[in-house]
Design a protein around this nucleic acid. Structure first.
Lengths: 165, 165
DNA sequence: TAATTAAGTCAACATGGTTGACCTTAAATC
DNA sequence: GATTTAAGGTCAACCATGTTGACTTAATTA
């Protein structure tokens, strides 16, 4: 437990710092998802489809179960979203030859193009932010956000160890 | 425009760095909202109610229009959520004496208690993360996330200028 | 052969977004 | 004083994306 108040009426500096973190998360996430949402609308897709496209693109050959484990949604919820992406031919599936129950999901060329369009907007946002904030700040950003993630999931984010100079 | 690939087949180090930022945002936001969601369930409230409770608590006397401007949702969507919070007496409203069309929203004692319960879990997550990452990292985290926010909204996050020592 | 696992399906429902039309009250402006 | 504007609210319909629960099929493993 943490003492969040230092006096009855005034918020402590500590509390201000922590609330600032909370608000940064809210506003940053809101704006971070804004541009992709606008693109998705043109394809009659939503944010849920973006997440699937992103993680399939990032993990070619991923199975449905692995995808569920990343997204933390139910199979039924994924199936609606994934079904549409397969039907619209953004995503291909083929059986895993080693275990034919498993399906290997991957992006089609069309899917790769959309993934690029969506992710570009977010990458460009990070390019600007990293440039504005500086290399040292980027390292701090990574350290704090990694610690915000539940310990068991931290390894999911591939670490970038080599430093640019 | 930014060159996001340095070679046709292999993702560049630059692209890896940017994708790492994207994934940190996804996983951190997912876990950051997980604990409050569990508490909200006990009150038959959802994440939307949490956002309203948070920002009304943070800005006592805020008007509906100002709240809409923070949340970026429609009046109709807010009214459903806000209406329930008023009915359940988490939030009080009274007319602004200077302009009686405006309503001043504030948390009741019951609302403050819930706000505290919800926000505590997120503040404790930040306490741990700030401690793990260190003071220098915290400054970097703030700089990067601030730059991720659209410029016109950066001032919404109150800056913490005084450094702890 | 039996049990388990991966995947999928159907149905019903909840939450929290959206658009559009319309109303009331109060304040500001002509 | 009359008109316009602003703040807020309301009703209805719809949509996206999450949930639970029950059940099926095919393939692998014990």
């Amino acid at each position: 437990m943490v003492d969040l108040k230092s006096s009855p009426d005034t918020a402590s500096l500590r509390e201000e710092e922590l609330r600032q973190g909370i608000e940064l998360m809210f506003y940053a996430y809101r704006d971070f998802t804004g541009e992709p949402d606008a693109i998705l609308e043109q394809y009659a897709l939503g944010r849920a489809h973006h997440r699937v496209i992103y993680f399939v693109g990032r993990n070619p050959g991923i199975s449905v179960t692995e995808l569920l484990d990343i997204l933390r949604i139910t199979k039924q919820s994924l199936s609606r979203v994934l079904g549409k992406l397969i039907e619209d031919e953004f995503i291909n599936q083929r059986a895993n030859p080693a275990d034919r129950r498993r399906k290997q999901l991957s992006l089609s060329d069309k899917g790769k193009a959309l993934e690029h369009a969506l992710t570009s907007t977010q990458m460009e946002r990070f390019v600007r932010a990293y440039r504005e904030a500086g290399d040292e700040a980027v390292e701090g950003f990574r350290r704090v956000l990694t610690s915000i993630i539940n310990p068991e999931d931290r390894a999911r984010v591939r670490p970038v160890t080599i430093r640019r100079t």
